[in-house]
Structures are given as C-alpha cells and as structure tokens.
C-alpha cells in the first residue's frame, strides 16, 4: 500500500510525493525543489494541496497510485514556474473570462493562481471545502476546455503537465504502464490483448503521440 503523500505537505521544504514514494520503496528520484523558486513564483501551501487534489482527480488511485499520490501536483507547480509545455507563452486573455487578473508582466498566465481562482469560483468559495463534489466541478472545467472549437485552454496545459508528472514518475511509468529501459529486441508485430499495457518510454510515441 502506498502512503498518501499529502500527509507531509505542511512543510514547504518537504520533497514531492515522488520522493516520498522513493523513500518507501527505495528507488532514486530527482527531488522536486519548489523552495528554489523566486518568491513571486512560489506556490502557497493551499495551491500545493489543491494541485495535488486536482492531479489525483485526473489520475485517481486504482490498483496503482494516483497522480496526487506520486507528487504530480508539485511537479506541475515546478513545471509551471519553469515554463514547461508552453505554460510561459503569452496568452490572449480575452479568449476566456477570468484570465486577465492572473497575468504576469510578460503576458503569460499564472496558471496555478488562475486554477485556484476558477475552481473556487465554481465551488462558490472553496474547492477544498468538505462536501464539495470536486470530481463534478473539475469535470465541468475539463468539458469546457475540450469543447468543440476550443483548441487552447489553460486547463489543457495543466492537465498535460499532470500527465507528464504522473507517467514520468516511477509508479506511473513502470507500474501503471510498462517501462522498458533496455528492450534488447525489436518485435514488429505482436497481438494486442486486453492486458497489453502501453510503454511509458516508447519515445516516438511520447514525442508524437
């Protein structure tokens, strides 16, 4: 059983959930160093908690850990602060209501601030409040972000980073999916069965999938 990583998240200098998992099962991971971020990019403790919940809602715990369990929330926050997946590109704030209040000077969006604000608004105040149907609220945001004609949406960027945080974690990459660092052979045509799992380090698929 994997320990739920949110237990230790009160401390800013705590390693991400992936590191906690590593301690538990003894694999090396690179620490997610949020405390190296400049003050105006550092997430609040509430944002860390919220992003962890959101990650877990996207990829929940099944027989393998969920995205929140493995620290994908902290990875997303690190990635947003460093501009991964185009998250530091300037945006056009008029495309959606509620974006203009969360812009950096360079016109890029503070995604974590926006998400916190947006989910709280959808929750009439506090997305993290007990009794809130978080899955329904997040599902509503997801449906809007993927509606026909909507090709750019900040939620898509965050969701992309959640997927990255999860499927490049040890649990997501090698327990939920298969990780084959040294295949040693090329088998060009194999049958797919219901048990066939995708390979997390199929690099061509990762790049172009």
């Amino acid at each position: 059983m994997v320990k739920h990583a949110t237990d230790g998240w009160e401390r800013r200098d705590f390693l991400g959930g992936a590191a906690l998992l590593a301690l538990l099962i003894g694999i090396p991971v690179a620490a997610i160093k949020l405390d190296d971020l400049p003050a105006d990019e550092a997430p609040t403790d509430r944002q860390r908690l919220l992003m962890s919940h959101v990650a877990q809602l996207v990829i929940p715990r099944t027989e393998t850990p969920g995205a929140g369990d493995v620290g994908a929330g902290d990875f997303v926050l690190l990635a947003l602060a460093h501009g991964l997946s185009g998250s530091s590109d300037p945006i056009t704030p008029e495309t959606l209501p509620g974006l203009s209040g969360h812009l950096r000077h360079d016109g890029s969006l503070r995604h974590a601030d926006w998400l916190e604000s947006d989910l709280d608004r959808r929750s009439n105040g506090n997305f993290l409040r007990k009794g809130i149907d978080q899955a329904k609220i997040l599902g509503g945001l997801d449906a809007e972000a993927y509606a026909d004609g909507m090709d750019k949406h900040p939620w898509r960027t965050i969701k992309t980073l959640i997927l990255t945080g999860y499927y490049t974690s040890q649990a997501g990459g090698s327990q939920e999916l298969r990780y084959e660092p040294v295949p040693g052979r090329w088998e060009p045509d194999l049958p797919v069965t219901p048990d066939t799992r995708a390979i997390s380090n199929d690099w061509t698929a990762v790049d172009f999938g």
Binding site: L57, V58, I59, P60, T62, A135, L138, G139, D142, A143, A145, Y146, R156, K159, T160, L163, Y167, G172, E176, L177, A198, I199, S200, D202, T204, A205, V206, D207, F208, G209
Partner: peptide, 21 residues
Amino acid sequence: GAFQSTWTAGRRDAGIGEAYK
C-alpha cells in the same frame, strides 16, 4: 513511419478519473 500513441495522447482527450486512466 507508423507509431502508436502512448500516454501523451491524453493531453488531447477530454476526461478525468478512472475511465480516463
């Protein structure tokens, strides 16, 4: 070449939760 998608395809797909996973 021809290739299959893997987890990165999820960025294009709507959905959250167990079915999505």
